[in-house]
């Protein structure tokens, strides 16, 4: 059965947020997107333990708490550490990639230049996670 996912998107770029929303509506997918413009906002959202997202899409380059710092906070939390977190970034820096997988991510996707490529990547990503069994806490 294909699940309806609750997705927390942590992204500071307005157009990137528009891209994800538009992609989901074009693909006619029935997922719910919660937006957070930075790490602090995301942590606030994650405080509501009865309304946690199924997956998190995380940008690395953000002001205040950057993606890797946010990831570290997440992985230290007894509950939040179980939420699959997928990095969505421009950085193909090997150092970042290594650091993310070391801390624990469920995927690392590089934002492509072409919008068509972006749609195709997001489609596959969401298709994969909607057939996965997820821990319900």
């Amino acid at each position: 059965m294909i699940k309806k996912l609750k997705i927390l998107l942590i992204e500071d770029d307005m157009i990137e947020i528009m891209k994800l929303n538009r992609t989901i509506s074009t693909l006619k997918l029935d997922h719910k997107i919660i937006e957070a413009n930075n790490g602090e906002e995301a942590l606030q959202i994650l405080e509501q333990k009865d309304n946690l997202p199924d997956i998190i899409l995380l940008d690395l380059n953000m002001p205040k708490i950057n993606g890797i710092e946010f990831l570290n906070i997440l992985k230290k939390d007894a509950v939040l550490k179980y939420i699959p977190t997928i990095i969505l970034t421009t950085s193909n820096n090997q150092k970042d990639l290594l650091e993310c997988y070391k801390t624990g991510v469920a995927g690392y996707i590089i934002k492509p230049l072409k919008y068509e490529d972006y749609v195709s990547k997001i489609e596959k990503l969401l298709a994969y996670w909607s057939v996965n069994e997820l821990i319900v806490v």
């Binding site: 770029d13 157009i15 990137e16 528009m18 891209k19 380059n61 421009t90 950085s91 934002k111 492509p112 230049l113 072409k114 919008y115 068509e116 972006y118």
Partner: peptide, 15 residues
């Protein structure tokens, strides 16, 4: 990174 991000945005907007 900072140079590529706006390019991506322009590409999406054009699309």
């Amino acid at each position: 990174h900072d140079l590529k991000s706006p390019l991506r945005s322009i590409y999406a907007l054009v699309s």
